[in-house]
Design a protein around this nucleic acid. Structure first.
Length: 211
DNA sequence: GATGCGATTCACT
DNA sequence: GTGAATCGCATCG
């Protein structure tokens, strides 16, 4: 065991982000005793390449990790309350990342249930990007840590077998206004942990008050 | 400097 | 189905 077998899953980090996203399906994230198998991910591109990406308009303090080497964790804060996890990919210097949208808890169920007391089923424990981060016990302090060398709180491990192509579905990214037609969301068919698709909801302007 | 809204979730109608 | 919570960043002045 442990000997690499022919055709064993590998992440080709410098591939385009949508290819990396596809490859990451089925991989397992380990955070201590807790393990989560990735069932849903989304790809985001770099400067000028993907209007939906945090890196589209260039480097900022928030997205700086996206411009670094692949295999690192990019964690960002959204809506003033939630953390979302990304795997940096692409060559160093070119910003790209894969948003981790959902997963199935395969170990450490009790610990995750304690972290997410509101969850009504185990499938819901890590369904949605902010829930996934909470299930793994990860927040902004993990931004910029490695996912592959064991120095960070999370470690990414390959699945025993790569998911077969027929089980992989793709479609538009969730909640994205720009480039809404780009099908860079990937998920595993039939997995109950996959989140529901929601189109970006344009906000209604508050009605003008007549004086 | 002020304003508007987002790679979301949860409570509520 | 809708709205609120609440912070960082882009945009406009």
């Amino acid at each position: 065991m442990g000997r690499p077998t022919r055709g064993a899953p590998v992440v080709r980090w410098t591939s385009p982000p949508n290819a990396v996203a596809r490859e990451l399906l089925g991989w397992e994230l380990r955070a201590g005793e807790v393990r989560v198998r990735l069932t849903e991910v989304e790809a985001y591109g770099g400067v000028g390449a993907d209007p939906a990406s945090h890196a589209h308009r260039g480097r900022t303090r928030r997205n700086a990790v996206m411009f670094g080497p692949p295999g690192y964790l990019y964690v960002y804060f959204v809506f003033g309350m939630h953390w979302c996890l990304n795997v940096v990919c692409g060559p160093e210097g070119e910003a790209a990342a894969v948003l981790l949208r959902a997963g199935a808890v395969t170990a450490g169920l009790d610990a995750v249930r304690r972290r997410r007391p509101g969850a009504r089923s185990d499938a819901e424990l890590a369904r949605g990007p902010a829930r996934l981060a909470q299930a793994l016990g990860v927040d902004g302090t993990a931004n910029g840590t490695s996912l592959v060398d064991g120095t960070g709180p999370l470690v990414l491990r390959p699945p025993r077998r790569r998911p077969v192509g027929e089980d992989i579905r793709s479609g538009p990214r969730v909640g994205v206004a720009a480039a809404a037609e780009v099908p860079w969301r990937y998920w595993l068919a039939g997995e109950p942990s996959v989140s529901a698709y929601r189109r970006h909801a344009p906000r209604r302007r508050p009605a003008k008050v007549q004086p």
